[in-house]
Amino acid sequence: MYLLLLALLGMARGAHSTYGAFDLQSLALGALPLALAAAAQAVIVISGGIDLSVGPVMAVFNVTAARLMVDQEMGGALLIAAGILVAGVLAGALNGVLVTASRVPDIIVTLAMSFVWGGVALLILGTPGGGAPQQFLDLAGATSLSEWISNAFLFLAVCLAVIWIPVRRSRLGLAIYAIGSDPVAAFRSGIDVRRSKIAAYAIGGLFSACGGLALTATTGIGDPLSGNLYTLAGVSAIVLGGVSLAGGRGGILGPVAAAFVLTLLPTVLIFLGVDANYSQVIQGVLVVAVVMVGGLATLRRRTA
């Protein structure tokens, strides 16, 4: 996946000699929400679940942020952002509680919840609108370190580092991988499977809230329908990024890199003079091909 990303960057550079710092900035800006959606989905899928409500949850926090921040100073906006992150944990945990308590398959629960969250987003903001202070938009749009490393990239790195590294290193992180790969074995080694699962959904919710804030920061407004894309695109990204849908395998950086690849793909196609709409086709073929190759590899290993 990283190789593919580098290859695509190389192709962009090769096809268009002016491809440089500015384009990297817009790439990071475009990929930011998808990368966070992919991270959210990745944590949940690693724990053996799936969340089809990631997109609508992002939309909920996008509109909440845009509605509350519209007349705020930077300080107020940051306070609101903090509140939204807490709400994200709660929203994710609610999904997790519903999945574990109802014992209905997670795909059904989150499908139903995607309607509920979508409705909530519409309740908060009926039509696209709202806004945020310029400084908040600069969190994603501007560059502060160097022109090659945009704030959007830093935003992403900080989100991932602050949330994922401590989790990954803790008992909880181990538990999330364990319940994903074999819930029975995990239960027998003394892991509270239900609580770990709820925690995985809560972390997913936290990433979704980050994604919602990122949507507000990158687009400058709130749109109740903004999240719709990100549910299925996020699933594509995690599959490309090497997370097994069966659970227990994969990481977060792969999906994030895949999100960048998916964002870069249309640009490269345009540079190469190919209709950008083919990027959807390529995305679909890639997703299937990656899984197919993986499947063939395990098949060969088994027969060998």
Binding site: L245, G284, L286, V291
Partner: peptide, 25 residues
């Protein structure tokens, strides 16, 4: 090819959207 149905049909959905958009143009 034993691809998980979720992924196969998700990928196929994306392919259809892309091809249909190009076709429409």
């Amino acid at each position: 090819f034993r691809v998980q149905p979720l992924i196969m049909t998700l990928g196929m959905g994306a392919v259809i959207v892309g091809v249909l958009t190009v076709y429409s143009q």
